[in-house]
Design a binder for these strands. Structure first.
Length: 491
RNA sequence: CGGGGUGUAGCGUAGCCCGGUUUAUCGCGUCAGCUUUGGGAGCUGAAGGUCGCAGGUUCGAAUCCUGCCACCCCGACCA
């Protein structure tokens, strides 16, 4: 029979895995914790890349590329940075293999030991700031607005496809500025870019906020994030933007001479999103029949499926389909005409639903006669008959409509799963029943946050930007609190 | 990294406890042919296996033992 997907209600985590594998997004590999991103999944990632890259360029950034390997000594220059990453690093210690003396296979050549080991980058701040030292002398060299698309490695103990893998793809922006204010503005600007991207392309509403000290990036003064809510009520950090202060500039001695002739340390930011967004995309919108992709990220936006009995009918439908296809392509819509005669229409319907193709057009002899098509939308499963006239505009509108509808649905879900807890018991009971974003008062200390985490397994996802200031009592300690923060269990 | 589970054809599985008519079961998929085609087609025939890998015990190992690899769940950890 067909590809069975575990229902969401039965086992959410299994449902997610089934989708990723059966929709052909990715699979596990022979290497622990590392995945193979398959062509269909990679096509979605490429669409994300294109959209983001355009947004980066539009905000004045340029792309560059830095090495995969980082000398160990670079790593230890920023104290909190190394502390944050030390436990999950892959290390290169040798550069050569040799035949085993017993003739069985090959072994590491002990004589080829590196004097200084290399760390496979878990992030690139250190190698980049070591490089920036040479790029920056004067205020005239600033700002530097560089992004790189790269892979990074974090030796995770427990992995899940896309959500947490030992190797993953991402972009990391690294900027250098003359003033603190300019760096902070950059940090927030890129956070805004991420929000726009999430809203407009992922069709995913997110909350912009600032992380607490516990959740802050190793080496940052302040970490900002966008947080999204998944269908099982768990939160997912979808992107981060860090204000790094002068930490890395001081660690790598990156100074510039100001207009006034004074030597100052440079101010820094870094920001990134990763293939984890693929996981967010799947978990935010999809259902028990398969993926639901927002049209703006769907590799195939419209699929045309012919239904015929005779060869003559097939030929006539081929012509009709080709006409429709070129008409839609003129509107920059990506169309696939699936004229395989090895599969029945019903099979194809199910297959494209599994793969999340937003719009399906079915054409048969009846349509040919009436100059109509049957249009089915993936998000609502509604079917309707469209006249051929102005089909291109109608489909274009439909795609926009679907994009918007998916976003609205996710927004409704989040609104319906946003709560307020005035006690630790309330917080816990909400977490155990529905999950979601839960606003609660907190006394502002790391100790309290830690204790709440131990009791409820929930963390503070963020303190929302522009948060309403209102006095209250911490749900754990009863100490005064000036605002509510968002708690959630998280991926 | 600790605890638990899993690994048999492309996928899902029976067999394992209690070693021996087992030339390893069944379903889906694959291939060939015919009939089909408006929601996952039917019939007939065929191909497809280092039983995760490596050792060991034994006359004999998918089955018992040891080590390793990978995956899943829980925990610890995690920008």
């Amino acid at each position: 029979m067909a590809k069975e997907i575990t229902p969401r209600s039965q086992d959410y985590s299994q449902w997610y895995q089934d989708l990723v594998i059966k929709a052909d997004l990715a699979e596990t590999s022979a290497v622990r914790g590392c995945m193979v991103i398959k062509p269909y999944g990679y096509a979605i990632w490429e669409k994300m890349q294109q959209a983001l890259d355009r947004m980066f360029k539009d905000t004045g950034h340029v792309n560059a590329y830095f090495p995969l390997f980082i000398p160990k000594s670079f790593f230890s220059k920023e104290a909190s940075h190394i502390e944050g990453f030390a436990k999950e690093c892959a290390i290169v210690t040798h550069y050569r293999l040799k035949n085993a003396p017993d003739g069985k296979g090959i072994i590491v050549d002990d004589e080829a030991k590196l004097d200084e080991e290399y760390i496979v980058r878990p992030t690139s701040e250190t190698i980049i700031w070591n490089t920036y030292r040479n790029w920056i002398q004067s205020y005239r060299d600033l700002p530097i607005l560089v992004n790189q698309w790269a892979n990074v490695v974090r030796w995770e103990m427990r992995t899940r496809l896309f959500l947490r893998t030992a190797e993953f793809l991402w972009q990391e922006g690294h900027t250098a500025h003359a003033t603190e204010q300019e760096a902070i503005e950059e940090t927030l600007k890129m956070l805004h870019v991420y929000e726009q991207f999430a809203n407009q392309f992922l069709a995913l509403p997110v909350i912009k906020g600032v992380k607490t000290a516990n959740e802050r990036f190793a080496g940052a003064m302040e970490t900002y994030c966008i947080e999204a809510l998944m269908q099982d009520g768990k939160a997912l950090q979808a992107g981060t933007s860090h204000f790094l202060g002068q930490n890395f500039a001081k660690a790598f001695d990156v100074r510039f001479t100001s207009k006034e002739g004074v030597q100052n340390y440079v101010w820094a930011t870094s920001w990134g999103v990763s293939t984890r967004l693929m996981g967010a995309l799947v978990m935010a919108h999809s259902d028990d029949e398969g993926l639901i992709l927002p049209p703006k990220l769907a590799p195939i936006q419209v699929v045309i499926i012919p239904v015929y009995k005779s060869e003559d009918q097939q030929k006539a439908l081929n012509k009709y389909a080709t006409k429709i296809k070129s008409m839609l392509e003129l509107k920059q819509i990506s169309v696939k005409y699936d004229n395989r005669d090895t599969h029945k229409p019903g099979f194809k319907f199910a297959e494209y639903e599994l793969k999340g193709v937003p719009v399906r057009i079915a054409i048969g002899p009846r349509d040919l006669e009436n100059q109509t098509v049957e249009v089915a939308r993936r998000d609502t499963k509604e079917k309707s008959v469209y006249q051929f006239v102005n089909l291109d505009t109608k489909i274009e509108n439909l795609l926009n409509n679907i994009q918007q509808n998916i976003f609205n649905k996710a927004l409704d879900f989040r609104d319906n799963n946003t709560f307020y807890a005035d006690s630790i018991e309330k917080l816990n009971s909400i977490l155990d029943s529905t999950g979601g974003f839960i606003y609660a008062h907190w006394d502002g200390t790391s100790e309290t946050e830690q204790k709440i985490k131990e009791i409820t397994k929930a963390t503070i996802r963020c303190i929302p930007l522009g948060n309403q200031q209102e006095m209250g009592k911490c749900i754990l300690t009863g100490k005064p609190s000036k605002e509510k923060v968002i708690f959630s269990r998280a991926y």
